[in-house]
């Protein structure tokens, strides 16, 4: 996976949250993630497939961040991780995937997406559908943090080298 393929996901994340939840999200530095433990309390995961590669996008929110985001989306304050929150996480994941895939298509990489799934719970696991490197990008908002993870087949070796980690 080339690092240039990460940028559309970062831009899509910022755009989706700004447009649908009036939330400003700031991206931190991307890093290689070595384990499957989610960096949040609720995660949306979506599979992406194309002719030349496939992969996974996940979005993991801390409780505080997602409660604020969904409260903004709904226009009502939500205080618990309920089904509406899970629903919203799925839709946010879907929209980030869609926006990013639109940009990736312009870059010559066409991917289709499946229907997202949502997992909740402390220290839940995220299983990406490929064994290629997982790139995590942390985001901060005024009400808490969240993290996106991208795992795409193809050119994984070059990405791992770019980030300064040894290829297994």
């Amino acid at each position: 996976m080339n690092l240039k393929y990460i940028e559309p996901f970062i831009a899509a994340t910022i755009h989706v949250l700004e447009t649908m939840a009036f939330t400003q999200a700031t991206a931190g530095e991307a890093y290689l993630k070595d384990d499957q433990t989610a960096m949040g309390d609720v995660s949306g995961i979506i599979g992406m497939t194309g002719k030349e590669s496939s992969g996974t996008l996940s979005v993991s929110f801390t409780k505080n961040s997602i409660l604020a985001i969904v409260s903004n989306m709904f226009g009502d304050e939500i205080t618990e991780l309920n089904n509406e929150i899970k629903d919203a996480v799925g839709e946010i994941t879907n929209m980030i995937s869609g926006q990013a895939r639109q940009k990736l298509e312009e870059m010559g990489k066409s991917l289709d997406a499946a229907i997202p799934t949502v997992i909740t719970g402390i220290n839940h696991s995220i299983k990406h559908i490929t064994t290629y490197p997982i790139i995590a990008v942390p985001f901060s908002t005024d009400n808490g943090d969240f993290t996106i993870e991208i795992c795409l087949e193809e050119e994984g070796v070059s990405l791992r080298r770019k980030i300064g980690r040894e290829t297994p």
Binding site: G98, Q102, E105
Partner: peptide
């Protein structure tokens, strides 16, 4: 009304 915005 969809997230599928690819040209195709």
């Amino acid at each position: 009304i969809t997230a599928e915005g690819k040209k195709e």
